[in-house]
């Protein structure tokens, strides 16, 4: 593991720990308003100051991090599951290969950000009604991001699986009477695990960026449910007077995406040392 990857791992662990344990240790609540302490600068009581409603920025940043990381992980899982299913099916089953790859190409040709916007616009109200405003939007955003970001995983896995299918141990397993589902779970998936891990780590980065872009366009989570993207969006309005409100969440998004990308690249180099610099 390179030095950069080690730093990235430490950084990511630190941020994750802070975000997970922070709300337990930090006494102030993210949503608690204190109108007597509005727009404060950095102080001992509020290390990052307060916003226009007197909410503590540190608490909001920690809560936002929880939401952003949760969205990133969940959307990545959706996208990896779809991508793995499509990729493995296309690689293993010859007659499925053509249609599934056409489907992948079709998704790659879709204008994704506009479609994400449309999906959020159309499904926001019904899903909010069904699961509550926060859970409904969480499901919607995770589902929409996951459903539009699986194509890379599918393509990479298809290639890997096709290469595997020609190997002797697969022939042996087939001769031993292994059925397709067992073949996929017992022989194929363990052998493409490294490629899957790389896709997964890069998928987290994409998902966090996509969520923050949606929030920035005003089509993400509601204002009382902070995510880093939402905080950044709210913060840009008061950029001139209180730059910290936008800069901190922006820096956190950048840090997480950078760490995850560096880790993903390093994993890829470990899995396939030929391409390493």
């Amino acid at each position: 593991m390179t030095r950069g990857a080690r730093i990235a791992l430490w950084g990511l662990s630190l941020i994750t720990l802070a975000v997970l344990l922070g709300p337990l240790l930090w006494p102030l609540e993210a949503g608690a308003m204190n109108l007597t302490a509005r727009n404060q600068g950095s102080s001992f009581a509020h290390p990052l100051g307060t916003d226009q409603l007197g909410r503590d920025m540190l608490a909001r940043l920690l809560a936002g991090g929880r939401a952003s990381l949760a969205v990133g992980l969940a959307a990545m899982s959706v996208s990896v599951v779809i991508g793995a299913a499509v990729g493995v099916a296309a690689g293993m089953v010859r007659w499925l290969d053509g249609p599934l790859m056409r489907l992948t190409d079709l998704f790659l040709a879709l204008p994704l950000l506009p479609l994400l916007l449309i999906a959020v616009m159309l499904f926001r109200a019904p899903l909010s009604a069904a699961f509550g405003p926060e859970m409904g939007l969480f499901i919607l955003i995770v589902g929409a991001i996951g459903a539009t970001s699986w194509m890379g995983t599918a393509r990479i896995l298809r290639g890997d699986v096709m290469a595997l299918m020609g190997r002797d141990f697969i022939t042996a397993a087939r001769a031993g009477g292994t059925r397709a589902p067992a073949m996929a779970t017992r022989h194929i998936l363990p052998n493409v695990a490294s490629a899957l891990t790389v896709s997964a780590s890069l998928g987290i980065a994409t998902a966090i960026l996509a969520e923050s872009a949606l929030s920035f366009l005003g089509l993400g989570f509601p204002p009382d449910f902070p995510t880093w993207g939402r905080l950044l969006f709210d913060g840009t309005e008061s950029l001139a007077s209180h730059p910290g409100r936008a800069l901190w969440p922006g820096a956190m998004i950048t840090a997480v995406v950078l760490c995850v990308t560096v880790l993903g690249d390093s994993l890829r180099d470990l899995a396939d040392p030929r391409g390493a610099p």
Partner: peptide, 22 residues
Amino acid sequence: AMLSYAVPPFFSGAVLIWLFAI
């Protein structure tokens, strides 16, 4: 290159506005 992938455009845009315009 990695950094500019990781910095979302609305963040770099905001920072640039803050720096050069404000």
